[in-house]
Structures are given as structure tokens and as C-alpha cells.
Amino acid sequence: MDGPVSVVGRWLTEAVPRGRIAAFRTLVYLFVAGDLVFFTPWVRTHASVPGELYQPLFVGRMLHLPTPTDLLVDGVFWTLLVLALLAATGRAPRLLGWSVCALYLYWMIIAMSYGKVDHDRFGLLVALAVLPTAGRARHGDPTRTEAGGWALRVTQIAVVCTYFLAAWAKLRFGGPEWMTGSVLARAIIRRGTDLADLIAQVPYLLIVAQFGIIAFELLSPVVFLLPERWRLAMVGFFYSFHAVTMATITISFAPHLVAMTAFLPLERVRPVVRLRRLARRRTGDDTPPDGAGSAEPGPTAEAAPVLPAGQAPAAGGRPVGP
């Protein structure tokens, strides 16, 4: 009988298709490139902020990182952008992966060392740290890999820790009064949408929502105890929670949502293959790729003779019957 250590070890390294790793890797690295351009381009403005306002995070102090300058910030930006796009192709997964991980971590240190620290990037940073260990993987490859399974499992744990530790922080610093206070009301006043204004008019609904948020975050580890079908349904609930958050108080949690795809069977989503099939249908060419499925006979093939009813072919090919 296996001991608990062996059971946990198998759970941590549960094999997954390499195609899932390839899809997850491409998605993560493309998001890093998009994050630089669309979500965090404001980080580049820190280069022109007075140096005395730079208060590096603990990791920045431990590594004795220099105060950001124009040359330093622009260098990190352009180098990281190019390397992330290259890493998304799946080539040199270890070299490019570790490089992107280090540079993106530095980008986040520059971003969060001026008084505000976001917790929605924890899962993404963990994904960047473990993806280089998954090795090579090709899209659509059904071969299973334990190394890739470990990378996805660690990312999943980081995603769930983001929820659970958020609830712990709320109760630690806000106490039980967090659930009965005006947290959501203040958020709606600051950055609420028209939908949020409608919801705020319903008596006690915001208080109920705050109790629900704490319950949801504390119970998030349950996702690991569910069978696959129900686990995917719970992950769908996670995504719906963030959709409502975005629709009401315009907080996207985009990096966290990307990391959460570690729960999904991404190998089933193959946009390039689907686009090729769509293109063939539009051009009227339904021939499968690589000649697969061809039913044309070879040059020596002979058509089978048509026999009268009741006759069967003999071993020599001549009909036998009454």
C-alpha cells in the first residue's frame, strides 16, 4: 500500500499531454508580450520618476537592484518583448524560458516598487518559473509527460493560493468586520460601472456579496478534490466571478486568468488546425492534409468482380456456386 508521500508525489506529477504544455506555454508567453504593450506600459514612466520615490520590494533589496533609469527600463522592455515572442514558439524552452522569467520578475519589481503591489500576478510568475522545467512540447502531441504535469500542478496551486491567501489577508487585517463593512460600496464609488450602480441599490446585496467572496476564496482548494468534470465546472465559476468583477468594478485580473488556464484541457483548442480546415472548406479542397484518408487504388489494384447472387469468390478468385 502506498504511503501519503507517494500519493502526493503522484498527484503532483500527474502526467498530461505534451500538447497541453505547448498550448499553455504559447498562451503564457504571448500574454507576457501583450502585458508589456497593453496592460503595463505605464511601468516605462517609472524611469522618469524621481529616484527617491523608488522603494524596492524585499526581493529587490535582497538582489541590490539599481534604481530604474531610462536606459535600464527601455532595455528590459524591448529585450523582454522580443524574448517572450520567441519563447511563444516553443524553441529553446529552457534558455528562453529562464530569460523571460528573470526579466519579467524584474519588470514586476520595477512596477510594484512605488507604493502599490498587485496580487493578480502571483500565478503567472509561478508559471513562468516552472515552464522551463517542462522541456520540449509540440502542439497536438498526445504523449504524456510527468514533468509537464508538475509544471501545471504547481501553477494550479499558485492560482488557488491567490484566492485562499486573499481571504486570509482580508480577515487578518480587516477582521470579520470586512464582511459587514463598506468595502464593495467604496469600490463602486471609486470605479463602479452602471451595472454596479444598479446592484448597489438592492438592500444588503453588497453585504451578502462580501460574505460570498470570503466563502468562495476560503473554499477554493476544494477544486482539487473534485472529479474532472466538476473541477472544470468550478474553474468556470472562477472565470464567471472575474467576469462579474470586471463588469462591476472594472478589475480584470488578466494575469491570474491566464495562469488559471493550467486547469483546462488546452490541447483540444488548436486554432491553427481549425483555420486550415476552414480555409480548405472555403476553397472547396476537402482533401485531408498529408494525403491522409486517400482511397484511390494503386497502379496494380484491380476492381473486384461483380458476382451473381448466391456465389462467393473462391481462393483463386473464380466464382464458386451452384
Rank of each mutant, 00 (worst) to 15 (best):
M1K: 13
V7I: 14
R10L: 04
T13M: 06
E14S: 11
R20N: 10
A22P: 10
R25A: 04
R25D: 03
T26D: 00
V28K: 03
L30C: 14
A33P: 11
G34V: 04
W42C: 02
W42F: 12
V43H: 05
T45H: 08
P50N: 04
P68V: 08
D70P: 00
L71H: 10
L71R: 12
L72F: 07
V76Y: 11
A88E: 07
G90A: 11
A92F: 14
P93Q: 06
R94W: 14
R94Y: 13
L96I: 03
W98E: 06
S99H: 00
C101Y: 13
L103M: 14
Y104N: 08
L105R: 03
M108I: 13
I109F: 06
A111L: 14
G115Y: 09
V117Q: 13
V117K: 13
R121Y: 15
L125A: 12
V126L: 10
P132C: 02
A134K: 01
D141A: 07
P142D: 10
R144Q: 10
A151Y: 01
A151P: 00
L152E: 02
T155R: 09
I157H: 04
V160G: 06
F164W: 12
A166F: 05
A167D: 08
R172H: 15
R172A: 15
P176G: 09
T180D: 07
G181T: 02
S182K: 14
V183E: 07
I188Y: 00
I189G: 08
R190C: 02
R190M: 10
R191K: 13
R191H: 14
G192E: 08
L195W: 07
D197I: 00
L198A: 12
I199P: 01
L205R: 04
A209L: 13
I214P: 09
F216I: 06
F216M: 12
L218Q: 00
F224K: 04
L226Y: 03
E228D: 10
R231T: 04
G236P: 03
G236E: 01
F237L: 15
F241V: 15
F241K: 02
A243Q: 08
V244I: 15
T245R: 05
A247R: 05
A259M: 03
T261H: 11
V269I: 15
P271T: 10
P271L: 15
V272M: 09
V273Q: 08
V273F: 08
L275T: 13
L278Q: 06
R282T: 12
D285C: 03
P288V: 03
A292L: 07
P299S: 10
T300W: 13
P305W: 05
G310K: 05
P313T: 02
P313D: 02
